[in-house]
């Protein structure tokens, strides 16, 4: 019983880390730039399919595809930002929702046409990530351990780059007061473009890491949008620490729900969300 509890906690933590990686980019763009980007998981899907293609068609090792997934999703998000999103920065939330949900449907149709609608089977996934280790009597799947490490690493890098670098200060200054930031010589458009690229790239990384744990098909862009929005709203807009905490809480409660109260199953995550938001409507670490 105790062993299974630890196992559930560990699996929940790994699942939470995956949710965190998928959603942290949205927390940055939605929370800091106030842009409602419902197509965030389409960027994740770009990363996922890039990894699948590189592995299956070109025989790349899985780890080498991760930076490419990041870069591809970041590039796609920059193209969309330059071409479409920036025109709607001052538009209403509804306009932003309509545009981005449209992009979701376009991306679903495009990937269904290119890759078919079935789940992608991955060949050549590295064996060292397939196995498991025993630790104090608990069975730890190697891949889940890897996800947890990735989550901590990304959190550390993000917090360091947004809180302690000059680039991060420029982003926060531009979000606080665009006109003053421009008046001091900060290139606000470029700053926002890079921020958007970072958010999109992280989604791509998340999408690529998600394949082995939850699978990949064209419905991904819509199916995971719900979870990502839950994580961001429970965590609090613009708070990286908040997204981290929320993703872990939601990941663990989802796993625990499926394991201990199967009749409630996947619904538990919504109850947790409702409870947390009634307790803290701004989210766990939300400022606004």
């Amino acid at each position: 019983m105790l062993g299974s509890l630890a196992g559930v906690l560990f699996d929940g933590l790994a699942y939470g880390m995956l949710l965190f990686l998928l959603s942290v980019g949205l927390s940055v763009t939605l929370g800091m730039m106030n842009f409602v980007n419902l197509a965030h998981c389409s960027f994740a899907m770009v990363g996922g399919y890039v990894s699948v293609s590189l592995m299956n068609r070109f025989g790349w090792p899985f780890l080498a595809t991760l930076p490419m997934a990041f870069l591809a999703a970041a590039s796609v998000s920059v193209l969309l930002e330059r071409g479409l999103y920036r025109r709607l920065y001052r538009a209403s939330d509804l306009d932003q929702c309509l545009l981005t949900i449209g992009i979701v449907f376009v991306s679903i149709a495009a990937y269904a046409w290119l890759y078919g609608t079935e789940q992608q089977a991955v060949e050549g996934f590295p064996p060292y990530l397939r196995g498991s280790l025993q630790f104090m009597g608990i069975n730890l799947a190697a891949y889940r351990l890897f996800l947890v490490l990735c989550g901590f690493l990304v959190t550390a890098i993000l917090v360091a780059s947004l809180e302690y670098t000059r680039f991060g200060a420029k982003v926060r200054a531009a979000v606080d007061n665009q006109r003053m930031a421009r008046g001091l010589g900060i290139d606000v458009d470029r700053t926002f473009m890079l921020t958007f690229a970072l958010g999109g790239g992280l989604a791509g990384l998340g999408g690529s890491l998600a394949i082995e744990m939850v699978g990949l098909d064209p419905g991904f862009a819509l199916a995971y949008l719900v979870y990502v929005l839950i994580v961001v709203s429970v965590g609090g807009l613009g708070s990286i620490g908040g997204s981290f905490a929320a993703a872990i809480v939601l990941g663990i409660s989802d796993m625990a729900g499926k394991y201990y109260v199967p009749w409630l199953g996947a619904f538990l995550i919504y109850l947790v969300m409702v409870g947390l938001l009634m307790w803290r409507p701004q989210g766990l670490f939300g400022k606004r």
């Binding site: 000059r166 200060a169 926060r172 200054a173 606080d176 007061n177 003053m180 001091l184």
Partner: peptide
């Protein structure tokens, strides 16, 4: 004045420094 509220006083000074 338009000080950036999310930045510390020192960050306000260094964010656009030349």
């Amino acid at each position: 004045r338009e000080i950036f509220p999310s930045l510390s006083a020192e960050e306000n000074l260094t964010v656009a420094a030349h």
